[in-house]
Amino acid sequence: MNLFIQAVITGVLVGGIYALVTLGLTLIFGVMDIGNAAQAAFAILAAYIVYWLSSLYHVDPFIGMILATGLLFVMGFYLYKYIVYKTSGLMAFALLYFLSIFLESTMVFVWGNTYRGIKVPYLSGSLQIYGYYIPLDRFIGFLMVSAVLAIIAYVLKYTYFGKAIRATMQNPYAAALMGINVDRIYQVTFGIGIALSGIAGVILGTIYSFYPSLQGVWIGLMFAIVVFGGMGSLSGTLIGSIIIGIISSLVATYVSSVWAPLVAYVILVLTLWIKPSGIKGRKI
């Protein structure tokens, strides 16, 4: 029983981070029907930027995270404005896939394909709650993920900007009639989507070690979560991530961690077989 609860706790913590790294993908897919194959590469890039800032210039990882997130937002904004905007469908996907490989190669070139980790000395150790063991870095990561998710949910639900995003997603023509600058919404959403995976990438980088080609592993997992949760559904992504996090953690505990990465793909196949529209049948 103890082991079981411990595995569930770990699963929830990890699932939360899956959710954050996937949320940007979901948002971009939901709003503009683009599968951003470069999403995970940007996450790893953010982790490298923070690693580099902290090990070379002793910038605090959390300050580094803010800088990297801002930088990724700008990159996403202009990437959409000058490149993605001019393409669509499969062409956009191919182009972004190319970009993911390009980023991966660039990172290998600059930092080498070896394991790195962002060290946060004050986050080593763990909490002990009712005898269960909660690593401090994962716990803080989970709190940050929750905070970011809450902010996103609030903005989407209650602000004019958030309503404009949802309106654009549902009917871009009508959104334009409301005076919404639809192109600007696309640019900003793309920027936010990429920035979100940047935050997740940094949090991951403080917990696990990373290397450039890890992006290929991550992007597969992220697409599996998007399909499982329901294409374009933010709450579906959250629920789906936590479920996959928990099951993976249980498999790692009771079977073997070797098989844990398979969980997402088994769920992907089951989803496509039983309920292709995913947990939530619709966007956002």
């Binding site: 004019y160 309503k163 404009a164 949802r166 309106a167 549902q170 009917n171 023509y173 009508a174 959104a175 009639l177 409301m178 919404i180 619709r282 966007k283 956002i284």
Partner: peptide, 14 residues
């Protein structure tokens, strides 16, 4: 061309 998954109020807000 209303926004089907927004409430009536949200449609008016927009």
């Amino acid at each position: 061309e209303i926004f089907p998954y927004l409430t009536v109020q949200e449609n008016l807000d927009l």
